[in-house]
Amino acid sequence: MTVELNHTIVYAHDKSVSARFLADILGVPVGSPAGHFVPVELGNGVTLDYADADDIRAQHYAFLVDEEDFDAAFARIRSSGADYFADPGHRRPREINHRGGGRGVYFTDPNGHNLELLTRS
């Protein structure tokens, strides 16, 4: 039996703004609203379904990207004005990391979710 993650729900103060923020950083489209969700589909078929909520607890979402996509996404992070860090605890601001011979960066979305881009898992 093969088990794959199909989708997860990401709670947001404004689902459309939050979906657009991530989609713009990753360079992917925002999908058409489905029910009360705004989807962002990733290259491996997993969908992040954004839903409005008042009480949001920050979550961590990590995205494996190739070197070229990292460069493009990191440029978009910097131009967006989002805070970014080399570590998940946010103690090394305005830096990236080089774990495992790759590159990685953590940044926060408009809801305080801790997002990560990495080139090596």
Rank of each mutant, 00 (worst) to 15 (best):
T2W: 13
N6A: 12
H7K: 06
I9W: 08
V10H: 01
Y11V: 05
A12W: 13
D14P: 04
K15R: 15
S16N: 12
F21D: 04
L22A: 00
L22D: 09
A23T: 11
A23Q: 09
D24S: 05
I25Y: 07
L26I: 09
P29H: 08
V30D: 05
A34N: 12
F37I: 04
F37S: 01
V38S: 00
L42I: 12
G43R: 10
G43E: 13
G43I: 09
G43H: 10
N44F: 10
G45R: 02
V46T: 15
L48E: 05
D49Q: 12
D54F: 11
D54V: 12
I56E: 06
A58S: 15
H60T: 09
H60E: 12
Y61F: 15
A62M: 04
F63Q: 00
L64E: 08
V65Y: 11
D66I: 07
E67V: 02
E68D: 15
F70G: 02
D71F: 07
D71W: 02
A73L: 01
R76Q: 07
R76Y: 08
I77W: 00
I77A: 08
I77V: 15
S79Y: 03
S80T: 13
G81P: 07
D83W: 00
H90E: 14
R92C: 06
R92W: 03
R94L: 06
E95C: 07
I96A: 04
N97P: 04
N97M: 03
G102V: 03
R103H: 06
R103D: 04
Y106P: 00
Y106G: 00
F107Y: 12
F107T: 06
F107H: 02
P110V: 12
P110G: 07
H113I: 10
N114W: 10
L115T: 08
E116S: 06
E116P: 08
T119W: 08
R120S: 03
R120K: 13
S121Y: 13
